[in-house]
């Protein structure tokens, strides 16, 4: 069994109004050193051992987990003991 940690982030150049609102809130808490905030998603998958694990994860990300028009993704694979 593998634990796959998928991180989905907005592409550079895509405006992130949510991140901007968070940055402003941080500034109002006097964390004015924060210049930019970008919000992304973290998705955890528990995946059975199968051939072409990485190829299939890439496909999952391209087809559903991320939208390649606006988002980038990367992932980490860990062996998981259950």
């Amino acid at each position: 069994m593998f634990k796959v940690k998928v991180f989905v982030t907005l592409k550079e150049g895509v405006l992130d109004p949510q991140g901007k609102a968070i940055q402003q809130s941080l500034a109002s808490l006097s964390y004015d050193e924060v210049e930019e905030v970008r919000v992304g998603k973290y998705i955890e998958l528990m995946v059975e051992q199968r051939e072409e694990l990485e190829k299939r994860i890439n496909e999952m990300c391209d087809q559903l987990l991320a939208n390649p028009v606006i988002e980038d993704y990367y992932y980490e694979i860990e062996e998981a003991v259950r």
Binding site: V14, L15, P17, Q18, A21, N67, V69, I70
Partner: peptide, 17 residues
């Protein structure tokens, strides 16, 4: 339709949130 690839582009949250 955008997510299915029948039309190009994507949707983001409204600028005002």
């Amino acid at each position: 339709l955008l997510e299915a690839g029948l039309l190009p582009g994507a949707m983001l949250r409204n600028e005002s949130l």
